[in-house]
Design a protein around this nucleic acid. Structure first.
Lengths: 220, 220
DNA sequence: CGTAAAATTGAGCTGTCTCAATCAATGTGG
DNA sequence: CCACATTGATTGAGACAGCTCAATTTTACG
């Protein structure tokens, strides 16, 4: 699931020059993979499993900045900046490939398709960050949860992981809480209301969306 | 005040190859300069005055994503992506220079110093966005206001616009509210408490910070 | 100098949180 | 494969941070 470089047609042959790292490194569930302030000489791309980019504050508070799905760079920032300023935590077990940054930059300079793919991934990441700022600043709890679910749903759809009205969904309420700036207790309340309205169900590591139109209306 | 390209030593002469646009375009206070979804063939850099990058939601809600100070790119994103996805609004009157994106990219490719300056500006912008996400998601009202004031204070200090304990400060309470996800009424309350505690004063377009240590303690 | 915009203050309300208890699910060791 | 232990979900009661509405004063601008 490392489609980042090969999603578009190869308009040149530099794409094949980018060596795929031999090793695909496994990580276990619920463990920190990379720590804040670590200096990275590589750009890891998750091949399999879910992870988060998390920022910690004093007194135990923490905020999830983004969910990292299979095929995504841990952070696009790492292409330009070796300093990791967030911590990367596994949700499920999985694996990643570590691409050498210098090599990556050379490959980007040599290939329009690699350049375009990485940049558009980075742009999408930044766009999501901006959306999240607006969401956390100005939306209600129900809207925040709806925004998160719709965003993930659309990304998982692109990854062809959605089947009908359901996807495998490893997030716990506390993840949703840390991503939306809410409490897990209140996330539960919001999800109960969604459930009773027949909109969404989360149970047994499975997300089912019955009325995505109603959910999307909350994201406007 | 367009120091972005000339901040560091010129380690090569490409820096001087980047033509400074003849025109320095003026903008009036309190007007939208660039609209959301506009396609830009240039990267504007504010020379003078303050502006915001703002995202609008339904029902009149809006969130300020960042304040743009003299010398800063309107958004680093524009270096890589011509689509503007936020609206840029003037706070004060001022001016900007429009750098051609294609030319800028060539200059970046040719000069380590230009490349480094632009990238580090972009990285700083992204780091602030991540901080803002954590702030809006997990901090109290007083902490949010403190974070904003400290961030602006430090940036204005670098720009040498701070004199002693005071800076010129054109933000109204509604700006602070839209940046912190609060109400202007409650911003007023927070600022009153700061004032009574002898920490900060805002009046007559002037920000004075008497106890920055106490303010910084709120940003941990 | 008059008018519009912003700041200030108060009273009351509500969305979300905290605390706490119970129940369900998941994983572990024997 | 079961009993136990741990982690997560669910629910309720009460508290409070921050909001809304509204009136008044101050400041800025043409």
């Amino acid at each position: 699931m490392c489609s980042l470089f090969f999603g578009r047609g190869q308009d040149d042959n530099a794409a094949t020059d980018l060596k795929i790292p031999q090793s695909q490194i496994e990580f276990p569930a619920r463990r920190t993979i990379f720590r804040r302030h670590e200096t990275m000489d590589c750009v890891p791309i998750v091949c399999d499993g879910w992870a988060t980019a998390t920022m910690a504050l004093s007194s135990g508070r923490q905020q999830i900045l983004s969910f990292i799905l299979p095929g995504e760079m841990v952070t696009g920032r790492l292409v330009f900046d070796p300093q990791l300023h967030v911590s990367i935590d596994a949700i499920t077990g999985g694996s990643y490939r570590a691409y050498d940054r210098a090599q990556l930059r050379i490959a980007m300079a040599g290939s329009q398709s690699i350049f375009g793919n990485i940049l558009s991934a980075f742009n999408a990441e930044n766009a999501r960050a901006d959306q999240l700022i607006a969401t956390l600043g100005r939306r209600t709890a129900a809207e925040r949860v709806a925004c998160l679910l719709v965003d993930l749903w659309d990304r998982l759809t692109k990854l062809q992981m959605v089947q009908g009205d359901s996807v495998e969904f490893p997030l716990r309420h506390s993840h949703i809480a840390d991503a939306t700036g809410l409490t897990s207790v209140y996330v539960n309340t919001v999800l109960r209301e969604f459930r009773h309205a027949g909109v969404v169900t989360i149970s047994g590591r499975l997300l089912r969306i019955f009325d995505i139109a109603k959910l999307r209306r909350l994201t406007l």
